[in-house]
Simulated assay, not measured.
Amino acid sequence: MKQIGILLMMLGVNTAIFAQQRTIHLWPAAVPGETAAKQAAKTTADGSNNVTRLTDVTDPILEVFPAPAGNSNGVGVIICPGGGYSILAINLEGYEVAAWLNKLGYTAFVLQYRVPKKEAGALQDAQRAIRLVRSRAAEWNLQPEKVGIMGFSAGGSLTARAATLYNVNTYTPVDKADSLPARPAFGALIYPAYLDKGENRTLTPELKVNSATPPLFLFATADDPYGNSALVMAGALRDAKVPVELHFYANGGHGYGLRNGNTAGEAWPALMEKWLKTAAK
Score class of each variant (00 low, 15 high):
residue 3 Q to H: 14
residue 3 Q to W: 14
residue 4 I to K: 12
residue 5 G to I: 14
residue 5 G to E: 15
residue 8 L to M: 15
residue 9 M to H: 12
residue 12 G to D: 07
residue 12 G to V: 06
residue 14 N to F: 01
residue 15 T to G: 02
residue 15 T to R: 09
residue 21 Q to Y: 10
residue 22 R to M: 11
residue 22 R to S: 15
residue 26 L to I: 11
residue 26 L to V: 08
residue 26 L to T: 08
residue 28 P to T: 04
residue 31 V to M: 12
residue 33 G to M: 04
residue 35 T to L: 15
residue 36 A to S: 15
residue 38 K to I: 10
residue 38 K to R: 14
residue 38 K to Y: 11
residue 42 K to H: 13
residue 43 T to K: 14
residue 44 T to G: 04
residue 46 D to W: 00
residue 46 D to M: 00
residue 47 G to H: 02
residue 53 R to S: 01
residue 54 L to G: 00
residue 55 T to W: 09
residue 56 D to I: 02
residue 61 I to G: 05
residue 62 L to R: 12
residue 64 V to M: 05
residue 69 A to C: 09
residue 72 S to W: 06
residue 72 S to P: 03
residue 75 V to W: 11
residue 76 G to E: 03
residue 79 I to A: 11
residue 81 P to N: 11
residue 82 G to P: 00
residue 82 G to A: 04
residue 83 G to I: 07
residue 85 Y to T: 06
residue 85 Y to E: 03
residue 86 S to C: 11
residue 87 I to C: 03
residue 87 I to N: 05
residue 88 L to N: 01
residue 89 A to T: 07
residue 90 I to G: 02
residue 99 A to Y: 02
residue 102 N to I: 01
residue 103 K to N: 06
residue 103 K to W: 04
residue 105 G to W: 00
residue 106 Y to T: 00
residue 107 T to A: 07
residue 109 F to G: 00
residue 111 L to S: 08
residue 114 R to N: 14
residue 114 R to E: 13
residue 115 V to A: 04
residue 116 P to R: 05
residue 117 K to H: 15
residue 118 K to A: 12
residue 119 E to Q: 12
residue 119 E to W: 06
residue 120 A to E: 06
residue 120 A to M: 03
residue 124 Q to C: 14
residue 124 Q to I: 09
residue 126 A to G: 00
residue 131 R to K: 12
residue 135 S to N: 10
residue 136 R to L: 09
residue 137 A to G: 03
residue 137 A to L: 03
residue 138 A to V: 14
residue 138 A to S: 15
residue 140 W to G: 10
residue 144 P to C: 07
residue 144 P to D: 11
residue 147 V to F: 05
residue 148 G to T: 06
residue 150 M to Y: 09
residue 153 S to Y: 08
residue 155 G to Q: 08
residue 156 G to Y: 03
residue 159 T to H: 06
residue 159 T to A: 07
residue 161 R to N: 09
residue 161 R to T: 11
residue 169 N to T: 15
residue 170 T to F: 05
residue 171 Y to C: 03
residue 179 S to W: 06
residue 179 S to R: 10
residue 180 L to Y: 03
residue 181 P to G: 01
residue 181 P to V: 04
residue 183 R to Q: 15
residue 185 A to M: 02
residue 186 F to Y: 09
residue 190 I to R: 08
residue 192 P to N: 03
residue 194 Y to T: 00
residue 196 D to H: 08
residue 196 D to W: 01
residue 199 E to R: 13
residue 199 E to S: 12
residue 202 T to P: 08
residue 204 T to K: 06
residue 206 E to V: 06
residue 211 S to Q: 15
residue 212 A to R: 14
residue 212 A to G: 10
residue 216 L to I: 13
residue 217 F to T: 04
residue 217 F to D: 05
residue 218 L to E: 00
residue 219 F to G: 00
residue 220 A to S: 15
residue 222 A to M: 14
residue 225 P to T: 07
residue 238 R to D: 14
residue 238 R to C: 13
residue 240 A to L: 08
residue 241 K to V: 13
residue 242 V to E: 10
residue 242 V to D: 07
residue 244 V to P: 10
residue 246 L to C: 08
residue 247 H to A: 04
residue 252 G to D: 04
residue 252 G to C: 02
residue 253 G to N: 10
residue 255 G to E: 10
residue 258 L to P: 05
residue 260 N to G: 13
residue 260 N to S: 15
residue 263 T to P: 07
residue 266 E to N: 12
residue 266 E to K: 13
residue 267 A to V: 11
residue 272 M to Q: 05
residue 274 K to C: 08
residue 274 K to V: 14
residue 276 L to G: 04
residue 276 L to A: 05
residue 279 A to R: 08
residue 279 A to Q: 07
residue 281 K to W: 03
